[in-house]
Amino acid sequence: MATVILVRHGRSTANATGVLAGRRRGVKLDETGRDQAARAGERLAGVRLAAIVTSPLERCRQTAAAVAQAQPTPPTTIQERGITECDYGEWQGRLLKDLAKEKLWGTVQSLPSAAAFPGGESLDAMQSRAVAAVRRHDATFEQEHGPGAVWVAVSHGDIIKSVLADALGMHLDLFQRLHVDPASISVIRYTSSRPYVLATNTHAGDLAWLAPSPPAGGRSRRSRSAAGHPDDAVVGGGAGPDTRPARP
């Protein structure tokens, strides 16, 4: 029952100028994006991370570095092509205001499962490889670090939206209902029963509550609150995590 924290990269130079960056090289965080990445790292400083997995693109690597720097002991950082940006093909590098005039734009908005970018990949293929990569790493970190493992995946807006849609059981055609801002944090916990989406598109707040609770009487706070199998959904919503400051 590991937990993945999905972090979108901070605002990039392309985001700030309305350009669809895609996989173009040389797209970095702007000043605002660097500040956003630092704040994301601060929010995660109280969570001991098993690892950071990042898209190979520079804006994500910069964001991953900011998250790692805020950790008391920086974790291993792994580059993963499976969560790299969608291959937008011929759309890459063009202004969004011009792309909005294309016929394909309407398909991307209302029927994403049928959208394939000229010279690039389909949104369906993008989701398949991203979900597969996230679930593979999640299983590996749980096996290596135990069920309380928490790790970070630093990726891109459409990638994170597609992973969230899968976890929510949403058809890809509904994934545009989700919103993922630069440097926002979303959280998924995969279990043997189902994925649990714990947060989406959050911008503020300490996330230390994601750290596993210390055992008390041989059972963790989380397992006690479930009053059954720890992967079950609690009828009525349950008591949630204990967010009180730790006693000295």
Rank of each mutant, 00 (worst) to 15 (best):
E121V: 09
E144D: 15
E121P: 01
G218D: 12
L95Y: 07
K161W: 03
R135K: 14
K28P: 05
H145S: 14
Q127E: 10
A130S: 10
P230L: 06
R25K: 13
Q127P: 03
R25P: 03
V197E: 03
S213V: 02
A139M: 12
A68Q: 04
Q79Y: 04
D231Q: 10
Q127T: 09
G10R: 01
P230E: 07
L57V: 09
A239E: 13
N201Q: 10
A14V: 07
G169C: 11
P248V: 13
R61E: 13
I188Q: 05
E144I: 12
A45D: 03
D124K: 09
S213W: 00
N15D: 15
N201T: 13
M126N: 07
P182E: 02
D232A: 14
A66Y: 02
V234G: 08
V134Y: 01
G18W: 06
T202S: 13
G22D: 04
S122T: 09
A183W: 00
M126D: 00
F141T: 02
A239D: 14
G238H: 04
G228A: 15
R94P: 08
P72M: 00
F141W: 06
L207E: 00
W151F: 07
A38Y: 04
A153H: 00
P74N: 14
A226Q: 13
S155L: 05
H229Y: 07
R244H: 08
W91Q: 03
A227T: 13
P56N: 15
D166C: 06
R48Y: 01
H171D: 15
Q92P: 00
A66H: 03
A208Y: 00
R177Q: 12
A133C: 08
A204S: 12
D206Q: 02
R219K: 15
D124M: 10
P230T: 08
V163K: 03
T200R: 06
S184K: 04
H203M: 14
A50V: 09
V197R: 03
H9S: 08
R222Q: 04
V187N: 01
A226D: 11
A199G: 12
V108L: 12
A70F: 03
S184N: 08
D35Q: 13
A37I: 05
S155A: 15
V235Q: 11
G33A: 14
S162C: 12
H203P: 01
G169W: 05
K103N: 14
A2S: 14
S192V: 14
Y88L: 08
Q71E: 09
S122Q: 04
A100M: 11
Y88N: 04
P112L: 03
D138V: 05
A50G: 04
H171S: 15
S110F: 05
L20A: 07
A115T: 11
G240L: 09
T107P: 00
G18L: 07
Y190V: 10
A125K: 11
A226C: 15
A2T: 07
K103T: 15
C86E: 05
A68M: 05
A70H: 01
K103D: 15
H171N: 13
D138W: 02
S192P: 02
T77H: 04
I159A: 05
T54H: 02
T32K: 03
A68Y: 00
G205N: 09
M126Q: 04
A125Y: 10
P241M: 13
P72S: 04
M170N: 03
